[in-house]
Amino acid sequence: MSRSCLPLTLDKVSFVASGTALLSDLSLTIAPMRRLIVMGANGAGKSVLLRLCHGLLDPSSGRRIWANGEARAQQQAMVFQRPVLLRRSVAANLDYPLAVAGLSRAARRARVEQTLARFGLERISDQPARQLSGGQQQRLALARAWSVSPQILFLDEPTAALDPYATRVIEEMILQFAEEGITIMMSTHDLGQARRLAQDVAFLHRGQLLEHRPAAEFLEAPQTREARAFLSGDLIW
């Protein structure tokens, strides 16, 4: 294993698309072994921030700095609101990122079996992934993310399309991942979920980072008017 890619630092990062600034002048350090929840209203820039950290987007200005100096860290993964599973079996979906990473056939098989066992997916390993229920699909997406041994896992509103039971299952998985030492950076607009999962909160408003503090402090005593309004459920524009 190479040395840790964390912390990840964003230095005065902006992201502009078609003339609109979706993120402006944002500086943020993502500390290792923490669960960071990104909060904010729809359109605040949560998704863009996660994609930018993950490397799917590049900053229009400013810098994204991994601690080990890589341009794009190898040991990271992302789970989307709607997981895109390949039109293949559950096992083949787990195999895919390992094959992309260049693992040998034997190593892949071992890792896939380990992952199937770890998440109780053995029974459905041959089933077409797209046939699974929404909750199961998201579970598989998390298992796939876990299988590549990420140091940091980005999750973009992973439970927004799920029912309460499936949401619980996913949240438990995320907490387990964190206990295993995986750094979590996740967006949500669900306050209850933030209370259950967050150690730190980053609050975005119109592409600007207004607060970045330990969760307890933020949730009890938000310092900005926008955050207070958001937490009390008021619409602010």
């Binding site: 993964a77 989307f80 895109v84 895919y96 992309v100 990473a101």
Partner: peptide, 16 residues
């Protein structure tokens, strides 16, 4: 359009 982000996220470039 559907897969792009996910595949890039999994480490596959366009050729892969």
């Amino acid at each position: 359009t559907e897969y792009g982000d996910q595949l890039l996220s999994l480490g596959a470039d366009r050729a892969r």
